[in-house]
Each structure stands twice: as structure tokens, then as C-alpha cells.
Nucleic acid binder design. Structure first.
Lengths: 170, 170
DNA sequence: TGAATATAATAAGCAAGCTTACGATTATTC
DNA sequence: GAATAATCGTAAGCTTGCTTATTATATTCA
């Protein structure tokens, strides 16, 4: 577990296709519970279910895909229900929004705060998404922006390509 | 003119609010004509009009905003008409798509090729968008991606913040 | 216990982004 | 000048993303 965490922090983390997904899901849910408790926020059933739906893959899901996913195990929720849960999860750093896809992704790196910049690696073959923690590149990027007097706030960095596993498979 | 070009290449280029917009538009249209001629592509009236609509500001416009813009000077074009023109312009490196906004932007830097990575600086006050040419940061970013075996292809780097001019104005 | 707050469900609908299908028009080429 | 290809227009519609409005259900706490 610590091993896992350290990896996601130290270098770009791409979910290995053979990783223990049950565990990674369970860990993430436990982590979410923890976070909510610390913040005195309620991790309600619907919020848990939405997070679980996102965790069911490492792929970003559109809001309507989340609805479809939830519909499998409960009466089909209305869009508003899911959007509220997503807003909550994002506000608490448990879910990222992938801007270039209008989609949502369960956060894999449990250690960064909600606001820090993250870069995403999106595999165009398998659809899995990895995260690069900000530290390494954000400084350069922000410096480049600032050099023209621009004050950066929010960065969207989304890199499409082919993950290591899919390269081997090809 | 050369001066202008050099600047857009050398460092992040944010359109100054007092720049000669008439000229910058005319330049861009002339450049587009040139590019199309070189490639034996047709710079048809509709393509020119769509590009001109995008050039009318330095803001990214949604497809329907482009339609609204065109509707001012011609019978309202159908979505498909505009999308076709946008596809053409993007394929020829004359227009960028801003992924995080589902919007389109006339390319300001006339010198980079269609495929090279560009970072966008999006001012949340005035809505203007500047470009950072890739060279400076793309290497780092790609290196970070590659360090986990990921083969990057297309990068989306979109930075929201406040431009120099709006900071002064505040 | 009753008032206030947070959360959720129901119902309905809007807007944006994009596509398919097909016919008409205009260039290009042989 | 007929055949081909590229471009454009018309018409229709689909999907997704997201919102407003309203009512109901918990939960908290004075």
C-alpha cells in the first residue's frame, strides 16, 4: 500500500493491466471515507456509488456513462443526482475532470491536494489514464506563462498517446 | 511584420489589447491563402469566412458562435457547413481546437506546423488566448511521460489565469 | 421537539456539439 | 465534353452535458 502510494507520487503512474484492481478500488474507497471524515463531509451512498462507478475502470467516464453504470445496480439516477455527487467528489479531490473529454476520473494519487496541477496520460488504445504529479513540470510551465506577465491559475495538461502495455501488445 | 512573427515564436504571445487588429487579421488571411496555395488546397469563400469569424477576436469561439457570427453577413449556415470548414482549417494548421472549451481559435503563430504542440494561455477575465510555442516545455513534458513508458502523441496544455493587461486593469 | 441545514429525488427541459444522409454544384482530369 | 473528385447546401436528428424548479428526506442542534 505504501509502496503503491509512493509510486504514484514519485513518477508518472500508469495503472498496470494486471494490478490488483479489487484492492485498488477498496483502497480508494477507504481513502475517500477517511478524507470525508477528516473534513466532516458526508460520504453518502450515492457519492460512494458514483465514486465506485468511476473506480470500476481507470478510464474517464462521461456523466451519462456513470448513470449507465449506476443503472445496473439501482434505479436509474437522474443526471442532476450524478452531477451533484461528481461536484462533491471533485471538490474533495477524489475525482478529476478530464477537460478534453468532458469526462470524470477517479483520482489515483491519494496524496496530492485538490487544487494542485496534475497532468494526465491518456492511452488512445486501452483508454486507461495515468497521472503525472505536478511537481516535475508545473514549475516550468508556470514560469513560461509568467514570463509574459500571465498569472496562471488552473492548468489542464492532457497528453494522448500509447501506454507502455499497449505498445508491447501491438 | 517580421518583428511580429519573431515575437510569437520567441516567447509566450498574448495579444496586446491595443494591437493593430485590422492588420493582424489581414496578415492571417494572407498567410492562410499562402498556405493553401502551397498545398494546392482551396481557400474557398466559406473557409475564408469561418477563419475571418475566428479572427474577429482572439477568443476561442464555439461552433455555434461561429454560426452566429457568419449569420450577420450571410444566410445562416448549417452546422455541418461550419464544421467542415473548421476541419479543413485545423487540418492545415490555421485553427486550433481548445479542448477544455470545445471551441476553436484562429492560430496566432504562423510559423509552427500543424502537428506541433502548443500551450494556450486563456485569460479568464477578457477571454483572450495567447500561445506558448512548444519548444520550451514540450520536451520536459514528453520526457516525464516517456519515463513511464508512455509514448506521447498529442498534448493538450491549456492554462487558465489572468493576462498581464487584466491584472493592471484590476 | 421544533427549526434550520444539508442532502437527495422527481420532473422537465435547454443548449451545445456533432453527425448522417442525400442531392446539387463546382472544379479537374482525361 | 464526359467522368471523376472535391466541395457545398439542405434537412433532420442524435447525444451529451448540464440546469432549473420543486418537493421530500435526513441530520444537526439549540
Amino acid at each position: 500500500m505504501l509502496e503503491y502510494r509512493r509510486m504514484t507520487l514519485a513518477k508518472p503512474a500508469f495503472p498496470a493491466p494486471d494490478h490488483d484492481h479489487g484492492r485498488c478500488t477498496a483502497d480508494a474507497l477507504a481513502h475517500a471515507e477517511e478524507v470525508c471524515e477528516q473534513r466532516a463531509q458526508k460520504f453518502t451512498p450515492i457519492r460512494r456509488q458514483v465514486l465506485a462507478a468511476l473506480l470500476s475502470s481507470h478510464r474517464p467516464l462521461g456523466a451519462y456513462e456513470v448513470i449507465d453504470e449506476l443503472a445496473k445496480s439501482m434505479p436509474r439516477p437522474a443526471p442532476i443526482t450524478v452531477y451533484r455527487a461528481l461536484d462533491f467528489l471533485m471538490a474533495n479531490g477524489l475525482v478529476h475532470r478530464i477537460e478534453s473529454r468532458n469526462a470524470y476520473l477517479a483520482c489515483a494519487a491519494h496524496d496530492h491536494d485538490a487544487t494542485s496541477a496534475v497532468a494526465f496520460l491518456i492511452c488512445e488504445r486501452c483508454g486507461l489514464v495515468g497521472e503525472i504529479p505536478s511537481a516535475s513540470f508545473a514549475k516550468d510551465l508556470n514560469a513560461a506563462a509568467r514570463s509574459s506577465g500571465f498569472a496562471p491559475k488552473l492548468s489542464v495538461v492532457e497528453i494522448t498517446g500509447v501506454c507502455a502495455h499497449c505498445q508491447k501488445a501491438a
